[in-house]
Design a protein around this nucleic acid. Structure first.
Ligand SMILES: [Zn+2]
Ligand SMILES: [Zn+2]
Length: 667
DNA sequence: TTTTATTTTCGA
DNA sequence: CGAAAATAAAAT
């Protein structure tokens, strides 16, 4: 009588749990744990397995009729309210399912959480010693002071200054202030800018290592960092995009360095822009955020104009003196397969005799972007994608830069069986290397692309070789343009400045300007003016003249004007839909059905569907829509309504629909 | 996303 | 006919 039917007496409460699946809804569970509140991290039975989740709300009027299961395990973690708000905001803006955003916040596999439950782990406590041997200039102090004064308020700052103007010292100084307040700071950097050099500088300044967070950090370290940020330990997390989702308990400052960098935009699966979401994160936490760059994004500049962002401008002590001398070389008279113009060769020769280093920049990996048969015209194509295979001569391979497909270069043409009949079309860095070796046989030459920098050890070896002057001529892609500073480098040759300008990308000019600015900035040092030789087929293009004359703001003004005329970002809003699938007809049919079901709205224009410029990737055919609106947050409700249209069959099997708010790629 | 239920396909 | 494969549906 006493202990029977415990259900009648126990007070089980119902809770809504958000799980880490790709769902935009919560699920109802019951629990006896009286202390369970919103934010509680749990494991719940879901289907036949247990998955991670977080309690989203308590006993909300759940409409669920079926059998309610009990929460499996209550884990010793509670997500802060700002984290939960952030999840909601990101999901709502990007249209990524709530549960998928939660997965980015929880960031670790369930087993890691269970380990901590079984045996709580000792977490290292950071110990600082502040080093003030670097003295700040007046403008650096003023900028830093402004950020510190902004503490506990949402203020987006734009730290705008050329390479060498001391942006890093400014924000490190602000971070010191946060640490002295026992607060937490987050520094976002593009993965290729997160160099040893940067870390050494941090360690010198603070006497301890920051917590690293990127794809190559071990699960163990991630587990520790995740707990440290949640437990309010005064840490500095330095990482790529994904660090933004960590559940900081006491975040007091966010830095987004190289804020214009494209890599902040996640291009696949779940599309989001880490810089923009970082601003949201700062607003929700009511803290300052610093967007640092020598070439801020036009969106950022426009936000300064609107008064939303506060500019902090660093002119730099030696800025004027170190601006490189840019020579534009007209390539139109150049004979075919002559990648190095006479003025460039002259400059290289001069450099070599002065014992100075040269960087030749070409943003294209491999030997040649296209290989064809002289006999029959056979082209090597990727079997899974509608692109040419890139020839990598060192490896004797042909590979696809979209899906990773690789094959050996065959001895005979697969179509006509002719021996030795292949012609390489167009140059990549390897081919430039070949040409440079021919012209400068005694120079020490090194090609540097992401292929060469695949491991930390390889990176360090190459960087050391460059700094110790074991290399005369560097030939590289954008990995060399970002992050590293080479003091012996005085000449930069931009082999094909036009490369990024083709293709229907609304940001092509902006991106090209930023890249050329960044790579030009590698030339020169404090004592000596650097030189840049810019090879182009459009020597009168205003973009190149702006680079030559260092008229960044004129270029920006002109570019903004054009964006306004077309109602493109930052004056209008875009979203893209990509329908993809294994069967071409099915994809086309689905896209056209989707088009027919588009809702009507005054403030939204639907363009498409059209076959994507990259018509097939990883065996999937692709069709695209582009949506335009003049109004912020108008596209999201429109898309929600559209994609949940009752007579729209759920995209099943091979057909997938992916949504990209504020797209950066239109391929 | 993962798992299970249902339908279709196709070889023996 | 029955197993395997493809497709749809469910998960609280
Ligand atoms: Zn052939
Ligand atoms: Zn491919």
């Amino acid at each position: 009588m006493l202990l029977t039917d415990s259900n009648q007496f126990s007070t089980k409460m119902q809770v809504q749990v958000l799980t880490t699946g790709p769902f935009d809804q919560t699920f109802t569970y019951s629990t006896e744990g009286a202390g369970v509140t919103r934010g509680q991290v749990v494991m719940v039975p879901f289907g036949r397995r247990e998955i991670l989740g977080v309690v989203w709300s308590i006993s909300e009027n759940s409409t669920f009729e079926g059998t309610v299961k009990d929460i499996g395990t209550i884990l010793p973690f509670q997500l802060p309210e700002t984290s939960l708000d952030f999840i909601y905001w990101v999901a709502n803006y990007t249209l990524i399912p709530l549960g998928s955003v939660l997965k980015m916040v929880l960031a670790l596999p369930p087993a890691e959480f269970l380990k901590v439950l079984k045996k709580p782990e000792e977490l290292p406590t950071p110990a600082y010693s502040f080093d003030h041997t670097v003295t700040l200039s007046v403008e650096q102090q003023q900028a830093s002071y402004a950020i510190i004064q902004g503490a506990k308020t949402f203020i987006p700052f734009v730290l705008d200054g050329v390479t060498g103007s001391g942006k890093t010292e400014v924000y490190l100084n602000a971070i010191e202030h946060v640490l002295k307040n026992q607060g937490q700071a987050l520094v976002l950097l593009p993965e290729i800018a997160l160099t040893n050099e940067w870390l050494e500088r941090f360690k010198r300044r603070f006497g301890f290592e920051p917590q690293l967070w990127h794809s190559n950090v071990t699960v163990k370290n991630k587990r520790q960092t995740w707990q440290q940020v949640l437990k309010d330990q005064p840490v500095v997390v330095v990482g790529a995009r994904s660090a933004l989702f960590l559940p900081f308990q006491n975040l007091q400052l966010i830095i987004v360095d190289e804020e214009h960098d494209d890599s902040y935009k996640q291009q696949e699966q779940n599309h989001y822009h880490a810089r923009d979401m970082a601003v949201v994160r700062a607003r929700l936490s009511e803290i300052p955020i610093v967007l640092a760059s020598a070439t801020p994004a036009l969106e950022t500049m426009s936000n300064i104009d609107k008064g939303k962002y506060h500019p902090l401008i660093l002119k730099g002590r030696f800025a004027e003196a170190t601006l490189p001398l840019v020579e534009i070389v007209d390539m139109r008279g150049q004979s075919r397969n002559q990648w190095l113009s006479a003025p460039l060769v002259t400059n290289i020769r001069q450099c070599l005799s002065n014992q100075e280093q040269v960087l030749l920049f070409l943003n294209r990996r491999g030997y040649a972007p296209l290989t064809l048969c002289r006999g029959c015209g056979h082209r090597f194509l990727c079997p899974g994608c509608s692109v040419w295979l890139v020839q990598h001569k060192h490896k004797g391979q042909l590979s696809c830069h979209h899906c990773g497909f690789t094959q050996n270069l065959p001895p005979v043409c697969p179509t006509c069986q002719t021996e030795d009949s292949f012609v390489a079309c167009g140059p990549g860095v390897e081919r430039i290397e070949e040409a440079v070796r021919k012209t400068f046989p005694s120079a020490r030459i090194q090609v540097v692309t992401s292929d060469q920098l695949s491991t930390p050890k390889a990176i360090q070896t190459i960087i050391d070789d460059i700094k110790n002057f074991k290399i005369d001529i560097l030939i590289g892609t954008q990995v060399l343009a970002k992050g590293h500073h080479f003091p012996l480098l005085t000449l930069v040759g931009i082999l094909d400045a036009d490369l990024g300008l083709n293709g229907g990308d609304l940001r092509a000019s902006e991106k090209t300007y930023q890249l050329l600015h960044q790579v030009s900035g590698r030339a020169g040092r404090e004592q000596k003016q650097g030189r840049v030789v810019l090879q182009t087929y459009h020597p009168d293009h205003p973009l190149f003249l702006s680079v030559q004359n260092h008229r960044r703001d004129d270029f920006y003004a002109c570019e903004l004007h054009q964006r306004q005329a077309q109602q493109f970002p930052p004056y209008g809003y875009l979203a893209a839909i990509v329908v993809s699938g294994l069967d071409e007809m099915t994809v086309e049919r689905y896209a056209k059905t989707l088009a027919r079901l588009a809702p009507n709205a005054d403030n939204v224009t639907v363009l498409g569907p059209v076959p994507a410029p990259l018509a097939r990737v990883k065996s999937r055919y692709r069709w695209r829509f582009l949506l335009k609106s003049s109004q912020a947050m108008a596209l999201q409700p429109f898309l929600k309504l559209w994609l949940s249209h009752p007579s729209l069959k759920k995209a099943t099997g091979s057909v997938r629909v992916s949504v990209d708010i504020d797209p950066y790629s239109f391929m």
